[in-house]
Amino acid sequence: MLKDIKVIAFDIDGTLYPDYRLYRKLVFYVLRHAKFYMHFLAVRKILHRTAPLSDFYEYQGRLLAEELGCSVDEARFKIDSIVYKGLTPYLEKTKPFSHVEECFSKIKEAGYRIALLSDFPPSQKGDTWGLLKYCDVVLGSEESGALKPSKYPFGILSLKMNVRPEEILYVGNSIKYDVCGSKNAGMKSALIMSRAEIFFRRLFGKPSRAEDIGTDILFSDYRQFTNLVLQ
């Protein structure tokens, strides 16, 4: 299945670290900015459905300005200070999944090239828990003008890596954004899902196997993923 894969690319948020570790740190921060985040999330929902933009940040600012009833400059300042810069200290202190660096090291040693593609700026995570040294390309989809599941950021990733889409395995934690987005772009996909979520999906009759979800690889921890890739 992976014989033609040359690049393994990873989402960051919820993929390299478990969401709950960040969310529990953010409770009081988000409550302090509750009104802002309510409107910002509404704007991001629109942007996930928007075609590629020549100036993503300007359009995002205009949408938020309409939501908040303020100027575009003020909206962009709020996004920068509350989201991009404001979340950085919390992200840098959030521990990644166990064995992530071990995984990166082994697949790099096996000859795969590694990339990161995230909907939020990778620079928010500092050195991304020591993983940047293994990466050949690091991209924020906002820079491409479109958020996942648009095929556009995945296409930019393919161009940057100088490989065909079908030579990329994209690893994420969202069926809608990561699996569907990468598959629609012609890539193979891998989905990280906790054993608890797999159990409850099975219990309630939701798709819980890779073939039913529509992904090529379904895994729950990074040693398992490493073994699946290198077997």
Rank of each mutant, 00 (worst) to 15 (best):
G181A: 08
A75M: 05
G186A: 03
K95P: 00
Y134N: 04
C103Y: 11
K108Y: 15
K95H: 08
F77C: 11
Y152R: 05
D55C: 05
E101W: 10
L218G: 07
K151I: 15
L203Y: 15
Y84P: 00
R209H: 03
K95D: 00
F120D: 12
G155M: 04
Y177G: 12
F97M: 05
M187F: 00
D19E: 14
L63P: 00
K160L: 10
G186K: 07
R21Q: 09
S220H: 06
G61Y: 09
M187N: 10
S71I: 07
S98Y: 13
A210R: 03
P121H: 14
H99G: 11
P207N: 07
F104P: 08
D119F: 06
L132S: 13
I192T: 12
T226A: 07
Y29G: 05
Y57T: 04
M193I: 04
F28A: 13
R32H: 10
F40Q: 08
G130M: 04
V72R: 01
V7S: 10
F97D: 11
D221N: 12
G140T: 03
L91W: 06
L203D: 00
D127M: 09
A185G: 05
Y84G: 05
R49Q: 15
I192Q: 05
S158I: 01
D73E: 15
I156H: 06
Y17T: 02
G14E: 04
I156M: 03
D221G: 12
D55A: 08
M187K: 11
N162M: 04
L26A: 05
L131E: 10
I5C: 04
Y90I: 01
L191G: 04
V83H: 11
P18G: 01
D212H: 01
L91R: 14
I156F: 06
I114Q: 08
K176C: 12
F97R: 01
G140D: 14
G214D: 02
A51Y: 11
P96L: 13
G145R: 04
A190D: 09
L169T: 08
D216H: 10
Q231T: 14
M161R: 06
A210N: 05
S220R: 01
Q124A: 02
L22C: 02
E142V: 04
F40D: 02
Y59F: 14
T94S: 01
N162S: 10
L26M: 00
L117I: 09
K3C: 09
L68R: 03
A51W: 15
S141L: 08
